[in-house]
Computed example of a mutant assay.
Amino acid sequence: MTAAAAVAGDEARIDSSVERDVTTLRLAGPWITRTAAPLDHDLAALVRKHPGGTVVLDLSGVSVLDTVGAWLVHRTQEDLATGGATVRVEGVSADQKGLLEAVSRVERDVPVKHPDRNILYDLALRTGKSTYHFRDEALALLSFLGMLVVKSLRALLHPGRIRFIALAHNIETTGLNAMPIVGLLSFLIGVVLAYQGADQLARFGAQIFVVNLLGVSVLRELGGLITAIIVAGRSGSAFTAQIGTMQVNQEVDAMETLGLDPIDVLVIPRVFALAITLPLLTFYASMMAIFGGALMSYFVLDISAAQFLQQFKAAIGVNTFWVGMVKAPVFAFAIAMVGCYEGLKVSGSAESVGRLTTQSVVVSIFLVIVLDALFSILFATLGI
């Protein structure tokens, strides 16, 4: 039985003969990539038809053998052995022998040893590593905070060091451009808060106190907190992505080579801009939330604008307003600090930019909530 594969300029073939229960497959011609497809078909047919016994693969007639051809020979040898045949390879030159051995080593499966796993041990190990990582990150961020405070005070004492063009640009991007999303979300939060409050207070016939609920919750807590969270997700992540991209492009290294301080050039304008815009955004967000609540009160509770303002004036003092506003610069400093710190940590890969941008948002929101809790404890202690 003979199977042949015609190839331009040469012929690769497989001659099969049987003598005394020994099947000899004589391989001839160039066994290379361009002849592999028809040879693969013929070899598969021979393996399917072979009943077993002894098979000799004779390579003495092979003129050229490359990696693909060696792989075909090795695969045929493995398939025949799997089918129960005893396979010998003969007529192999020194070069062909080395190539066949190399293919055999690559094809050989390396057994994987699965170590014994202890779930509690793994949990303790991960917890310990996370604790050490948290400690190191906290210390590094605290060190960056100290350096940033020193350089911020130096910039305030020497205003000529402040880059006012960069400051104005960052005020626009973090403040003016954020007004639509902050205003819309705050308005909707005011609507929801008034509606839910009215639904609960209606059980006691005290719907008018929805004004108290709205004013105190928005001015003391929600206005500043929601604005800070929105800005952390919007502007804080932008700081990390911008500075991180500059790190990847080695622009920060170029600044240092020119004798420029990246903190003065990149960080200080962003910190000062956010410290200016976040209190203004907090005031704007609080007014939009109260407006949304007033609108809902008018349509649902039939509380007129005059009644709303009168009750609001009686229920809300100046301290309530300042309690919410005094948090905003602290939130702004924390968000800008974390965003710039994570950006400066970026290494030379795009994956690092995405990972640290995500980490910037998470850490910023975490710090904002922690600071808000500390402010609440402080104000409660002071009786404000």
Rank of each mutant, 00 (worst) to 15 (best):
A8I: 09
E11N: 14
R13Q: 15
D15L: 13
S17M: 12
E19P: 03
V22W: 03
T23I: 14
L25Q: 02
W31Q: 08
R34L: 08
T35C: 13
A36S: 15
A37Q: 12
L39R: 06
L43F: 12
A45Y: 03
A45W: 04
A45F: 00
K49Y: 00
K49Q: 11
K49H: 10
G52S: 02
D58W: 00
G61D: 06
V62M: 01
L65P: 01
V68M: 02
G84Y: 04
A85E: 09
T86E: 15
V87Q: 05
V92T: 15
Q96H: 14
L99R: 08
L100M: 11
V103Q: 06
S104W: 12
S104G: 15
H114L: 05
R117W: 06
I119G: 11
K129A: 12
Y132C: 12
R135K: 13
A138Y: 07
L148Q: 05
S152D: 03
H158P: 01
N170I: 08
I171M: 15
I171W: 08
I171A: 14
V182T: 13
G190T: 13
G190I: 14
L193P: 02
G197K: 03
Q200P: 09
L201W: 06
G205A: 11
A206S: 14
Q207H: 03
V210D: 04
L213S: 04
S217R: 04
E221C: 02
G224Y: 02
A232L: 07
R234N: 01
A241Y: 10
T245N: 10
V252I: 10
D253Q: 07
G259Q: 00
I263G: 03
I276T: 12
L278I: 04
P279T: 10
L280D: 02
M288P: 07
M288Y: 08
F291L: 15
G293M: 08
Y298M: 15
Y298V: 14
Y298T: 13
A306W: 01
Q307D: 14
L309E: 03
L309W: 06
L309V: 12
F312A: 13
F312I: 07
I316V: 13
V318S: 10
V326W: 02
V326G: 01
A332S: 00
A332P: 01
F333W: 04
A334F: 05
G339R: 09
Y341E: 04
V346Q: 00
V346N: 00
V353W: 07
T358M: 11
T358F: 11
S360Y: 11
V363H: 10
S364E: 15
I369L: 14
L374E: 06
L374M: 15
T381F: 09
G383I: 11
